[in-house]
Design a protein around this nucleic acid. Structure first.
Lengths: 213, 213
DNA sequence: AGATTAATCTAACAAACGTTCGATGGAATT
DNA sequence: AATTCCATCGAACGTTTGTTAGATTAATCT
């Protein structure tokens, strides 16, 4: 197969697209994220996405090559928002801050990203387990990096004696993150601010539910 | 419309069905639960269910009136298994047992039902949030009863001073149950027994992660 | 054994699915 | 003012979907 050679003087990586393209592309992604979050992977149809986005189903193919490309973009964007949110929150801390405050910051940032970052994060959390394997693999490097981030965070705290070292970190981490992730199933922003959930989660994580004796 | 009157001497509520019917019905439900757990609601098709169950798609309609009836049965059975598992475990305890041991028992029973009770519980946990509202309402009484069970458990413990009363139970409960529910996303029975997860979850819940001073 | 009922198969249906493509109007460029 | 390109529409395509119904086999009963 011979590929058609690009003109030598053509501008490289030129996004020769108008202003409206990015706008519609964003609306399509927003609609897909919303559908994906509420109805799951299999029930999110192109025609419903188009309807929510306010365009015709066929028009989507001007912006995306396939349905899978849309859902893939939504999923990756969701994972990235959580990962980068927590990473940046940690990076913004002063160098001399303790392990416990780093963990507290990470918990708060995770919840903040999850619950106040639109439908992308929720869609990603809720549907990752049910999409075809090819999808999962595409965003797996990001997910893996996020897992490592938490593993390092907890391992460093254990090594310094800031938290108990008799707890298996391979159980502790998913139990903690599971508790946070599940908030997408029940949290109602009209009831409480996200910070309240974060504060109590950290309190429980650190001190447990037994009364102080 | 005139309904065909049943013979007067016919046995009432007679399940005039052979032995094989219940067997196939069970296989269909098993297949549906497995599909539902792995691919979610929208991607679970009747033909795939039939294939897994080892029959033809059309034959399903001898046992069920519609696809929705199957999925509904799977979902309800999953919720019921968790609810009754925990309820019975608590009922089996001696009367004089303390609040903390009751909570410990409930956590262990919840995880046990979730992780070793086939695909029904996992399917129910994972897909409840993405099925149409009409579905959710059918199993809502059971879910509500389960929520009340935990609320009573925690409220009683707080009232007796067995656990801290400065924690909001409306945050504590979903955070705890979320931590447990999320295990369906990561738990691998080949790695550890369920009891290990339960033990560490209770340990964390009671004492927190800070070192004992 | 013959008759009756239980259970499954096969083949088809209409609707909805992801996707393609030529026509079409508006915006930007010349 | 004419032209070029961006963005969308509208209608169609081949599949797959849930569902139906008559034919067919397996099991049970008299």
């Amino acid at each position: 197969m011979t590929e058609t050679a690009a003109p030598l003087n053509a501008p490289l990586n030129a996004p020769r697209r108008g202003r409206k393209s990015a706008l519609s592309r964003g609306q399509i992604l927003d609609a897909a994220a919303r559908m994906l979050r509420r109805q799951g992977y299999g029930n999110t149809t192109l025609r419903k996405i188009a309807e929510v986005a306010g365009i015709q189903a066929g028009s989507i193919y001007y912006h995306f090559a396939s349905k899978d490309e849309i859902l893939d973009a939504v999923l990756e964007r969701g994972v990235r928002a959580v990962y980068e949110g927590v990473r940046d929150a940690l990076a913004a801390l002063p160098d001399n801050v303790g392990h416990l405050q780093r963990i507290e910051t990470a918990v708060a940032a995770h919840l903040q990203a999850l619950l106040s970052h639109g439908d992308y994060t929720s869609a990603s959390i809720r549907t990752y387990g049910e999409v075809p394997e090819a999808f999962q693999q595409k965003s797996q490097p990001l997910r893996e990096a996020y897992v490592v981030l938490w593993q390092d965070l907890l391992a460093a705290a254990q090594a310094d004696g800031a938290i108990r070292s008799d707890l298996d970190p391979h159980i502790l981490r998913p139990l903690l993150l599971g508790s946070l992730n599940w908030t997408v199933e029940w949290y109602d922003p009209a009831q409480r601010p996200v910070a309240d959930i974060a504060a109590q989660a950290v309190d429980m994580l650190f001190h447990g539910v037994l009364p102080k004796d």
